[in-house]
Amino acid sequence: MPQSTLDDTVERPSPLPTAVRKALPSIGLYLLFQLVSFGVLWLMSWKADVSPGRFVEGFDANWFLSVAQNGYDQPVVIGADGAPGENSMVFFPFYPGLVAILTLVGIPALPAGLVVSLLAGCAAACGLFVLGRDFAGPRVGLLMAVLWSVGPGSAALHLAYSESVLMALVAWTLVAVARRQWLLAGALTLLAGLTRASAGALVAAVGVAALVAVFRRRDGWRPWAGGLLAPLGLLGYLAYVWIRTGRPDGWFWLQNAWQMHFDFGRFTLAQIGEGLTVDRAGWVTVTALIVLVAVALQLWTWATRLPLPWQIYGTLTVVIALCSSNYFQSRARFLLPAFVLTVPLALVLAKLPNRVLAVLLPAAAVLSGWYGAYLMTIAHLAP
């Protein structure tokens, strides 16, 4: 039976080399399916007579690489209508900071960004394997890592994007929470808060887990310290943008340049309705179906006995992903950190023989790769 992450007993962590060795299949399959997905992007780029490098370093990657090379050097520009112009401060600093470190040793920014994404993806696959193994066995752990790596938004994992870094921090934070390593959990959550705004879901999950430990009088002062440490990265960066813009809502205000704000899902619902009823671009219909499947999986997770921090994190991540007001095509990427959606599927697929999985999983990788490549090469949209 699955065990709660807040159980009275603490599982002794495996030595790191042993843990990595056991996770090697998940890392290997992650790399294999990323290669498959990038191969699909290369083929569709070749068919469109465009270099795949244009997409690897395009879209949000341009902003991340600009921050890595130049810092937040853009002044805040306000248009005649009082709205802000596009500004790099919308993009959180931890991922470009890692890229900047590699550029110090002579690696150009784009290859450095891809190396960071690749290594972080391997760390995320390893962390998801450990989470799933501790929850329901190694087969479920392997499938959780693989299903995450072939999700519809997984094209971002082989671009210069920050999703893989966020997922690595999320996975290992929840491992630390499960083992009641509160200081480590707080520190990793702090870094996640410097990576993407959606890390607020992780802050909430760690905070609730720490409060439960405090109320149950476990682990002394450590839950207090971990819970207080967790939000400092996110709050610290929002405070930095406040200082730069002179507005306490500075980061949210800058998002208006991209017409992005929290709208309680109205935009998403409207797009789903149009995608399923109006003769529009095919990607709108496909994205609408992906969103509906994600909602169904979210409901399924509520009916599955999952650890409380997972439920809090997963639910809030889905809410954040589906309640923004623009870029409907990016919904799959916004949902990518919601790894909890893979758990019910992993529990079902774990019962299937390997020969069936050997067909299903590569097919999923190809379909996912096609979806991401179609958005970039045919629809000319950011994934």
Results as ranks from 00 to 15, higher is better:
185 A>C: 10
53 G>Q: 11
175 V>Q: 04
180 R>E: 14
357 L>K: 03
286 V>E: 09
247 R>G: 02
122 C>M: 15
361 L>Q: 05
377 T>A: 12
317 T>D: 02
128 L>P: 07
120 A>Y: 01
251 W>L: 15
331 R>L: 14
224 W>R: 03
100 A>T: 11
304 T>W: 06
335 L>R: 03
294 A>K: 12
320 I>M: 14
168 A>P: 06
254 L>N: 01
51 S>N: 10
305 R>V: 12
147 L>N: 07
99 V>L: 11
123 A>I: 13
107 I>H: 03
330 S>A: 15
173 T>Y: 09
266 R>T: 15
99 V>R: 10
107 I>D: 08
316 L>V: 05
181 Q>L: 04
261 H>T: 12
257 A>I: 06
110 L>W: 00
323 C>V: 03
130 V>Y: 00
278 V>A: 07
303 A>V: 04
70 N>Y: 12
359 V>S: 06
125 A>R: 06
252 F>N: 06
303 A>C: 09
360 L>D: 03
69 Q>H: 00
102 L>M: 10
153 G>S: 12
151 G>F: 15
141 G>T: 00
183 L>E: 13
59 F>R: 08
108 P>L: 03
353 P>L: 07
344 P>W: 02
201 A>L: 05
267 F>R: 02
210 A>E: 02
290 I>A: 14
83 A>D: 10
97 G>D: 06
25 P>W: 00
189 T>F: 10
12 R>P: 08
176 A>W: 03
284 V>D: 05
366 V>L: 15
35 L>E: 07
205 A>V: 13
